[in-house]
Computed example of a mutant assay.
Amino acid sequence: MKFAFIYAMPGLQSSSIQENVTEKAHFYCVSVDMDHRETAADIARELVEKNGVQMIELCGGLASAEIIALVKEETENRVPVGAVFYGPESRKPLIELMGI
């Protein structure tokens, strides 16, 4: 199994893809700058095409309908794309913290 987590971090440019390997799975983790969240779509395409990723999870900072749609489009819906969502009680503090 190969899966990936793409997360957003304020001020952090896309870094190299971090890979963790176990007996049963390959896990890829990569960051994008919060101000350029749309780069998650390009990274997702690369993960699918070059690394053979079979599933993608997006962090809560990327969990907007727009970003999810971009990732699905860029990967041509070849892999499941999921996203972390926060409960209603957490939305306001998250928006204030992340400026989204």
Rank of each mutant, 00 (worst) to 15 (best):
M1C: 05
K2L: 04
F3I: 04
A4E: 00
A4W: 00
Y7T: 10
Y7E: 15
M9C: 11
P10A: 09
L12H: 11
Q13A: 15
S14D: 00
S15T: 11
S16I: 09
S16E: 15
I17L: 11
Q18C: 09
N20P: 04
N20T: 13
V21Q: 11
E23C: 09
K24A: 14
A25Y: 12
F27Y: 07
F27D: 04
Y28L: 09
V30T: 04
V30C: 07
S31A: 15
D35P: 02
D35R: 10
A40N: 01
A41K: 01
D42I: 02
I43L: 11
I43R: 00
R45V: 06
R45N: 07
E46T: 08
L47W: 03
V48N: 00
V48G: 02
V48H: 01
E49F: 06
K50V: 13
V53I: 11
V53K: 03
M55V: 07
E57N: 09
G60N: 05
G60L: 06
G61D: 01
L62C: 04
L62R: 01
L62A: 02
S64Y: 04
A65W: 06
E66R: 08
E66V: 07
A69L: 08
V71W: 00
R78C: 08
V79S: 03
G82N: 07
G82S: 10
A83P: 07
Y86F: 15
P88M: 12
E89D: 15
S90R: 13
P93A: 12
P93F: 09
P93L: 10
P93C: 10
L94T: 11
L94V: 13
I95K: 13
E96K: 12
M98F: 13
M98Y: 13
G99T: 05
I100V: 12
